[in-house]
Design a protein around this nucleic acid. Structure first.
Ligand SMILES: [Zn+2]
Length: 510
DNA sequence: CGTCTTTGACCGGCGC
DNA sequence: GCGCCGGTCAAAGACG
């Protein structure tokens, strides 16, 4: 069987484009040269169009900046979000190939535990060219992987599998945490290599990231850029979408070098943290009418339902209810994936075990933190309501924190009170979050067994504060409240991260 | 000596 | 106004 599988693994250099969103020189391609050079690159430049992006010699590429996108798409250009790597969607659109591989410019070649460099692209191709098995779980994972097969008892009628639409790769080093978890565990690094590929079972949602992703454009392309497709576009032939879209996750790994600023991420993600609670049940429950036989029908019906059911949550969804937007939907029989390409990142919902790969247990930080739950946020009045809900969800009580004045701090200083609180399960009070703090007070609080500690960031000119308090109700839990946004990076983490990159480069060049 | 913690004083908001 | 309460200040102490 193995030889057959290898024979299937043909060269896709005429059938696959590599899409790279970037804001900088693409020196990282140097490491990928042996794997990427035969392929055509589509580079989508985020940020200032007047910047010149350097591309190493010898690559075949086309490059688009924001001006190009505006020119090519005209009024529909607003569909492409340039706030983030979501601009990669434009690359998906302009490609003419059957397959897309997309990777971020801060990702390097990873190594297997044996030290062998991983050809991520080859693994993606293997994933895409071999069938998926979403209807019946194979306990030996991907039966089409080298050295694997179907387990005894796997129904023969299902062994043929279904076409694979998505290959979702993982990464080492900087873990894929949400902003809140990132805040609490800035130094954690993923070193766990799991040698497995598995099909996401039918009907489950999973958190998908565009950082190391390959897909079959003919199967699932429209979902990645649907809002951009005009009347003249060949969407008719996507009718076989009713067959479902299968996704595999696991190998290949890449090496992710950059830890983004958790406070910036928090600003981008925090709405999603709220919405998640309402969105997932919505998409799990939604069913489209049988009459919707084209992607377009489905999209429009879905857009209407979004507007109708999610509009009340936030005006954002009113806008997204329009057929042209950055919101993408992927329909799977009786289930819908909701993909929000902004901030890479998307949603959600995992097969029971996928948390294994998305948030592995990490070795470097021996503190006893286990998980992070959002507790409450302050920003706009609309979100305060939601706060109460999450807060209840956590099943813990927390005095009267919501006595925040709604931005009456005018007087020339905009100083929006950014206040983020969350709880962690930890034996120790002092969490190493990468910043340096000076304690400036401690108070006993009414009705609480434990005192509250007050800290200020020691960085010159930075006014960020935090409070730390252990709950008397559940002594294991520490509530941390951050206020303000750091005006600087965490010096340790950047130094450490730089060190790691350097070490990686050295071993790579050796 | 620099740096961080400890801890009572202080202060402003709020309910009575 | 008064007292309570949570947040902050700053002097004194701990630590290296
Ligand atoms: Zn700071």
């Amino acid at each position: 069987m193995g030889s057959l599988k290898m024979a299937q693994l043909r060269d896709l250099k005429d059938e696959l484009d590599i899409v790279i969103p970037t804001i900088r020189n693409l020196d990282f391609l140097e490491m990928w040269r042996p794997f990427f050079q035969p392929y055509h690159l589509i580079i989508v430049q985020d940020g200032d169009p007047s910047n010149t992006i350097g591309v190493p010699e010898g690559f075949d590429y086309e490059l688009y900046n924001r001006n190009d996108v505006n020119r090519i798409l005209g009024p529909k250009a607003s569909c492409i979000s340039f706030k983030d790597s979501a601009c990669r969607c434009f690359g998906f659109l302009v490609s003419k190939k059957k397959y897309i591989f997309t990777i971020d410019d801060d990702c390097f070649v990873a190594k297997e535990p044996s030290g062998k460099e991983i050809n991520a692209l080859e693994q993606h191709i293997r994933n895409l060219l071999t069938p998926s098995t979403p209807l019946f779980f194979n306990t030996l994972y991907d039966p089409f992987a080298n050295g694997s097969d179907f387990v005894r008892g796997y129904p023969f009628s299902l062994r043929e599998g279904l076409p694979t639409a998505i290959s979702h790769g993982l990464w080492l080093n900087i873990p894929d945490y949400d902003a809140l978890t990132q805040l609490v565990k800035p130094r954690e690094r993923n070193t766990r290599y799991v040698d497995a590929v598995m099909t996401v079972p039918k009907g489950t949602l999973f958190p998908m990231c565009g950082m190391n992703l390959a897909f079959d454009r003919e199967l699932i392309g429209p979902a990645m850029y649907f809002g951009l497709m005009g009347d003249g576009q060949p969407i008719g032939r996507y009718d076989d979408m009713w067959a479902g879209w299968c996704a595999k996750t696991g190998l290949p790994y890449i090496w992710h070098s950059k830890a983004s600023n958790p406070f910036v991420n928090l600003k981008k993600e925090y709405k999603g943290i709220y919405w998640q609670e309402d969105i997932i049940p919505f998409f799990q429950s939604i069913a489209l009418r049988e009459e919707c036989t084209s992607v377009q029908d489905c999209y429009i019906e879905l857009a209407n339902k979004v507007k109708e059911r999610l509009g009340p949550i936030d005006p954002y969804f009113e806008k997204l209810g329009m057929p042209c937007n950055v919101l993408n939907f992927v329909y799977v029989p009786t289930r819908v994936f909701f993909t929000e390409m902004e901030h890479n990142q998307i949603l959600f919902l995992a097969l029971p075990k996928s948390s294994d790969s998305a948030s592995p247990n990490l070795s470097s930080n021996p503190s006893n933190i286990s998980q992070v739950f959002p507790r409450f946020h302050f920003d706009s009045a609309g979100l305060m309501k939601k706060e109460a809900k999450i807060y209840q969800h956590c099943g813990t009580s927390y005095g009267s924190v919501d006595k925040m004045k709604p931005g009456k701090k005018e007087g020339g200083k905009e100083t929006k009170k950014h206040k983020y609180a969350f709880q962690t399960r930890s034996q120790v009070d002092i969490l190493d979050d990468g910043y340096r703090w000076r304690k400036y007070g401690q108070k006993t609080v009414k009705n609480s067994k434990f005192p509250r500690s007050y800290y200020r960031c020691t960085h010159q000119g930075c006014i960020v504060k935090k409070q730390v308090q252990r709950l008397s109700k559940d002594e294991e839990i520490v509530v941390t409240t951050y206020e303000g946004i750091h005006s600087h990076p965490t010096d340790e983490t950047s130094a450490e991260n730089f060190d790691q990159i350097l070490r990686h480069l050295q071993t790579y060049n050796a």
